[in-house]
């Protein structure tokens, strides 16, 4: 079988990191960083999501490129939806 067996140690480490980051994201929301608040929150969320995808969902260990392609293309098309919609909303008031 080509599927990976991840060690308990790694799993626990990821779990702890995720918990700590949840605390950090909640705490940093009360600190005034200006417009950076949103960016920090999203960066932390994305980092957490990446940890889950890569380790809990085994994407880091899989030899299968296809899974990575599927994940990346789904995110790409989501960004297309968001980006091209915003192309309208951010420029409407300029008219």
């Amino acid at each position: 079988m080509s599927e990976p067996i991840v060690s308990t140690k790694t799993n626990i480490a990821v779990w702890l990191t995720l918990l700590v980051l949840t605390g950090v994201t909640a705490g940093v929301a009360f600190v005034d960083l200006g417009p950076l608040n949103t960016i920090v929150a999203l960066v932390i969320a994305t980092f957490k999501a990446l940890l889950v995808v890569l380790i809990f969902m085994h994407v880091k260990y899989t030899s299968e490129k296809l899974v990575k392609v599927v994940v990346i293309s789904a995110v790409f098309f989501l960004l297309l939806l968001l980006g091209l919609s915003l192309a309208d909303y951010t420029t409407r008031l300029l008219m």
């Binding site: 599927e3 994201t25 600190v31 929150a41 999203l42 969320a45 999501a49 969902m57």
Partner: peptide, 28 residues
């Protein structure tokens, strides 16, 4: 294995929902 993938996905959605819904602007 596959149900696990589903569960993690639902978890990830929440990882984004939490800051987006609860933490828009808490500083003031």
């Amino acid at each position: 294995e596959n149900s696990g993938l589903y569960w993690h996905f639902v978890d990830i959605v929440w990882i984004y929902l939490f800051p987006l819904l609860y933490l828009i602007d808490r500083k003031k």
